[in-house]
Design a binder for these strands. Structure first.
Lengths: 241, 241
DNA sequence: CTTCACACGTCAATGGCGTTGTCATAAGCT
DNA sequence: AGCTTATGACAACGCCATTGACGTGTGAAG
């Protein structure tokens, strides 16, 4: 995003492609969009989503915080770039095989897994529409998979939407749980082994009958099952040739 | 929440039950946990999630912002109280009808809709396991629906897990989009009408062919479709009696 | 009915945040 | 070599959550 919503080029930010002079900071770092995005990801990964502030980012970069605004219009703009970077890393090197169901399954699992690898960043960025390169490439690929499989355009779009939002929704949920402070995370898991194990069959027959299954199941992500259920239902909708 | 995680009572906050002296503020309001929670909900509902700051809450209450800290340890503590209130309202008055598919559908839509009505609180609360009364009641009810429908226990548990996390995942995703600052929200929606509408059919044939459908579809939540897809696949798994 | 302890609303201050206007300087073109 | 200007640095603004000190009105005790 090198232009503003109103179409005028920003006074402050010059597009990465048009950059000529690269002037090192006082501490010697040479800045670039890529360096800033990578540093932001590292910062969030190491110190949690709460550590993501322009001032701390400046410190991590070895530059004045305001230097970031030479590359991004705002923190929000930067966040979108981080989100796009995550999308790109998730599908790096992947190619569709031609089997639409296997391809969708693989993409879903990849998006989910890569979000969990950077839970703090995923929580911040998963629900944004970036309009940037990696996002565009992903949408093009997945729409292609669905249209080539034989779904008419309105179905392809609606099914893509449901598919990607389910992947991102589970990613946010599971990421958020992972990004929780360690004590809170432990406490939340313990609830299944304590509070729910001790309910009386008289008052809570269904929970009492399945408490051991609940405690085990809730430790895993439900996404793989939800993904397969979705794909099963989608397959049932495929127009027969 | 009147005690800290470490078990010590806070020096500053006295539990609602132990409160004796109710001293009106300069502007005449009489404070209480309930008044603060209600005002916070009204604030978020009327002026958007971005309006939720302690300072503005103080203004809306007709009290000094710091007075809030006599009732809650932090804004996070307050938001959890708000979320807890919401769980109670969400399924208030609902009873299962005996039609398992219709019942699951109704619960899913209710959870989703109630989250969207208070996005800020939903985003913070959706991924926590509270083990409190309302949560327990909900799980008992839904496990009952699935087991009574004829699913064996391991399936009932796994399907419940997938179902509830799908509902919460979409709720978080859609809530987060709603909770965005107004400019970012507008920008995210505009992307579909600008960036994606102008891609060339030569480089991005699938997006170009469906750009108008995309722009329209992405304005709505994909949850209703995803929910029906899930229920369709679940129905196909139901053991025949 | 008076007294008194203290709960709780208020004030002021702290330190952090994003963002912007201004300046000076080094990079790269001519 | 000289000039332009992109770009990093600095300082300042207004917002935020949170906290310690203070004094006042309240409810209970006698």
């Amino acid at each position: 995003m090198t232009e503003r919503a109103d179409g005028r080029a920003s006074e402050r930010v010059v597009p990465e492609a048009a950059r000529r002079r690269r002037r090192p900071t006082k501490q010697g770092t040479v800045l670039s969009e890529q360096v800033i995005v990578d540093t932001a990801l590292r910062l969030v990964g190491q110190h949690g989503a709460g550590a993501f502030t322009v001032r701390r980012l400046g410190a991590a970069l070895g530059a004045d915080p305001s230097a970031v605004y030479r590359y991004f219009h705002s923190t929000d703009d930067l966040l979108l770039a981080v989100a796009d970077e995550l999308i790109g890393r998730g599908l790096h090197g992947w190619r569709p095989t031609g089997d639409w169901r296997a391809d969708l399954r693989e993409v879903g699992l990849r998006v989910h897994a890569h979000s969990l690898a950077h839970p703090q960043a995923a929580v911040l960025a998963a629900y944004r529409t970036t309009g940037r390169a990696n996002e565009i490439r992903t949408i093009e690929t997945m729409l292609g998979i669905l249209r080539d499989a034989g779904f008419p355009d309105p179905d392809a779009v609606a099914l893509y939407h449901a598919f990607i939002d389910q992947a991102l929704g589970f990613a946010v949920l599971d990421s958020a749980a992972l990004a929780l402070p360690a004590p809170a995370q432990r406490a939340d898991l313990d609830v299944w082994d304590t509070a729910y194990r001790t309910l009386s069959p008289a008052t809570h027959p269904h929970i009492a009958a399945t408490a051991h299954l609940l405690a085990a199941d809730m430790r895993r992500s439900a996404y793989p099952l939800a993904l397969d259920l979705l794909l099963t239902a989608v397959a049932a909708r495929l127009p027969q040739p």
